[in-house]
Amino acid sequence: FHPGFLYKTPVTINTVDSDSKRSRLPFSTDFYQYDGTAAPLQEEIAKSVAGTQLGHAGFRLHYPLNTNEYKDEVMVFQGASYFRVVGPQQVYG
C-alpha cells in the first residue's frame, strides 16, 4: 500500500531469497499506479523521495485460493496493527 491518508508512517517490508538472505524492499513509484487525477503525483513523489527513504504503508498478497482463474486477496497487512487473512471459501468479515 502507498503511504498517505491514515497510514503516513512507513513500515519496513523485507524479502527473503532462496538462500535465506533478507533484503529491504525499497519504495518505488513503479510499484504503484498513478491514474487520472493522481497522475501528476508520480513525478512529485519521485522528486520528493530522491535521496530519502520513503516506505510502504503495508502490503497485500493474492493467490488463486478458490479457482485457478482468479487470484483472491488472501492477506492484508497495513500500518503496525491492521491485518486480515482469509481461507478457501471465506470472505472478510
Rank of each mutant, 00 (worst) to 15 (best):
P64C: 03
A57E: 10
Q33Y: 09
A38D: 14
Q53C: 11
S18M: 08
N14V: 05
Q78R: 15
A50Q: 15
S20P: 00
S18C: 07
D35L: 09
Y7M: 12
N68A: 11
T12H: 00
S48K: 15
H56I: 03
V16E: 09
I45R: 08
Q90A: 14
L25M: 07
I13G: 01
G55T: 02
P10Y: 14
A50W: 00
R24D: 02
D17I: 09
G4Y: 05
T29L: 02
N68V: 00
I45N: 06
Y82W: 09
V91P: 00
A57G: 05
V49Y: 12
V74P: 01
R60N: 00
D19C: 03
V11G: 05
H56F: 03
V91W: 07
K47Y: 04
Y70L: 07
G55N: 00
L25P: 07
S18D: 12
P3E: 06
L25G: 05
L41S: 14
G51L: 10
I45Q: 08
N14Y: 13
D19N: 04
Q42C: 14
F27A: 03
N66D: 15
G87I: 06
G4Q: 04
R60K: 05
S20N: 13
P64E: 01
P10N: 02
S28P: 00
T12N: 11
N68F: 03
S48G: 12
T15N: 04
